[in-house]
Design a protein around this nucleic acid. Structure first.
Lengths: 380, 380
DNA sequence: GTTAGTTAGGTCATTTACCTAACGAAGTAG
DNA sequence: CTACTTCGTTAGGTAAATGACCTAACTAAC
């Protein structure tokens, strides 16, 4: 493809920011003259990257044509290779969703919570092969982002597939040929919160996911903080307990704050008079909401501990906003307890609960894929 | 001043990166033609921003002239308003140091460790008035950065001086008219490590300062991570102890890891057979180095606790490199202990001790001032 | 000492990528 | 219908950067 002119790149970038826009709008936003915007737009139209889409009427004066990203710009895939369920979303480069499908991972490993990537990848691969033909003509596939429930040391699959586990997973997926990036699933969920969820207005925020496992992600100025080798946000490795006299356990926080251990602790403290203890986090929270005292005690205690993790995050990086997500973290009862724990802190911070649910990860992957594809189109 | 042309800006930026460079070097680095670089350089020379400085000989072919930032580019001031000592460094925009002076703060408050900004500002103001005339003709003063031992919520003094404490401090300083920014002292020290110290090769790193007080700073991609309201790195507010059964103390970590409490704990555990316990952190570390068992025990224990703080930093943001600084933190014995504590962690990380000493903060302030001044020259 | 080869640095016509000005087209307001 | 406003195109102009070419200055080798 011939390279775009500078002004065409600028116009394309502005158009992706606005979704739909008229040439006079773009002209004013970029401080470019009308002829310059017109020639740039023609250049983009000839490549199929933009197309006319209606016009603005009702104002005085001649009505302006509206423009948007066209079909020739192509589409992207977000793939969530999850432990219990795998999901695929396809988005056009214009931002509209073309497709969203999901499927359970049926494998013995999925119940223990251990990350059996191959089983998940098999499921995702099958789903992909059924789904891709349904996309029809949506232009070229420009980018795939795969969300993984593991630390992603190398986002570039060429480097990452030197690890046999990743290599096997990629083979099982049998992806169509397109640029590919790997990303951590918590990072993806955080991106979704920033673009589609409750953190859209925040310049920076922290995302803390509490569920079967516990993880965090940081977004600063719209960019993920990945760390020197992809380990940023892996709070499972925090020393816990952290006390002067006691030796902390490696992976201590994971064992302490994960859903499984929450249930074990709850069961241990459960009085016989209340019947059988809850067998899932959902049940525990439901019974706490119904006023069952031992369930309330367990939830309060757990919220306090998650709150201390949040305090640590806030004291270190002062995100201004913390979004709580995940099966346990997005529960309103938990959010309230976390807020109380934070009240002693002098750092100003807001807590919000995620409203995106289980699809946050795929949506984030799709957003990242679209961003990456647009970046390549615009800056190269 | 008339505005610079685009190519002149690019040439100036490249020249500040390289210090000294020839036109062909710049031409190649920026992919600009030789005539373009030459005209841009003439433009800069006419404004006094650059000047010839020797030539490169010994190579085959005609020898190229070397260029550097000139005197007309002016100079900047870094001011460290410290609790016990105040320092001022003046740097030319070329980077070379013009002046470095310091003075003790004589005030009752300085001994208790409480931040009496006014006393420090009085001392800094007096030092400034004596020092400025010595600068001679170094061109215009383009930027002042003041390092403060407090949280800096607003770097812009216009906004910050709404707080009476900051307002009084600025009044006591009676600064010459020039653009002014405030910055946290630990942040400044971290910048110094990244530009002049042991972190020059690191794309990102964390700086942990342990001394009378404890603080941290994060540098990502050459930029300070300041947080939403300037509280990033204020690890003093971390909950401690952090245990399931115990209630953490607000400001707990500060009380636990500060030098004063290290000495109190050491004295409490000091056996009568060893004579009087150490009265300063320097003495404690010296006696530990000489093989005194109770001193060694105290140092080891303290290193373990600092190590756990470092583990928390690493688990959250994976900096890849952690620089230990401050009166206590930069001691080799402490660094060793921290390294051992980190050995259980699966995140790859390197620990280095700061070699800059007590001037790190001013130097960082001067570096920030120079960066800011260059940024304004180049991008406006 | 001389000459060949290489690199620095300047001059000038040309291209590129914008801009402003002006005008017809297409809408609204009265 | 007339007056007015805004859109979008055409024509002409300009500043910045380029490529091609030349001279200057230096090194290496004979």
């Amino acid at each position: 493809m011939t390279s775009l002119s500078t002004s065409a790149r600028a116009v394309l970038a502005e158009l992706t920011r606005r979704g739909r826009a008229t040439r006079p709008q773009i002209s004013q936003a970029l401080s470019l003259s009308k002829p310059t915007v017109s020639t740039a737009m023609s250049e983009l139209e000839e490549l199929g990257l933009v197309r006319e889409d209606g016009s603005v009427q009702g104002h005085t004066g001649r009505s302006a044509l509206l423009w948007r990203i066209g079909e020739g710009a192509g589409h992207v895939l977000g793939v969530d290779v999850g432990v219990t369920r795998t999901r695929i979303h396809a988005h056009a480069l214009s931002g509209e969703r073309l497709l969203g499908v999901s499927r359970d991972v049926t494998s013995p490993a999925s119940r223990s919570g251990a990350a059996d990537l191959t089983a998940s990848a098999d499921a995702a691969g099958a789903l992909l092969r059924e789904t891709l033909p349904r996309l029809g003509d949506s232009g070229p596939l420009r980018q795939i982002v795969i969300a993984l429930p593991t630390v992603v040391t190398d986002r570039d699959p060429a480097a990452a597939s030197q690890s046999p586990e990743v290599h096997d997973m990629l083979k099982a997926l049998s992806l169509p040929p397109a640029p590919l990036l790997l990303e951590n699933n918590v990072n993806c969920a955080a991106v979704a919160e920033g673009n589609l969820g409750v953190a859209q207005d925040a310049a920076q925020f922290a995302y803390v996911q509490a569920g079967v496992r516990i993880g965090a992600a940081l977004v600063i100025g719209g960019r993920l903080l990945r760390g020197a080798s992809g380990w940023a946000g892996e709070v499972a490795h925090l020393p816990f307990p952290w006390d002067a006299g006691r030796e902390p356990v490696p992976e201590g926080l994971e064992r302490f704050l994960g859903a499984e251990h929450l249930l074990l602790r709850t069961a241990a403290a459960w009085p016989a008079s209340e019947g059988a203890p809850p067998t899932s986090a959902e049940e525990l929270f439901q019974r706490a909401g119904e006023g069952c005292p031992p369930a309330q005690r367990a939830v309060t205690e757990h919220a306090t501990q998650v709150g201390r993790l949040v305090v640590a995050v806030v004291a270190l990086i002062d995100p201004g906003l913390v979004v709580l997500g995940g099966g346990v973290g997005s529960n309103p009862l938990l959010v309230q307890g976390v807020q109380e724990t934070l009240s002693t802190l002098s750092v100003p911070v807001e807590i919000r609960r995620s409203g995106l649910g289980a699809t946050a990860t795929v949506e984030g992957a799709a957003v990242l894929a679209r961003e990456q594809a647009l970046h390549r189109l615009i800056h190269a």
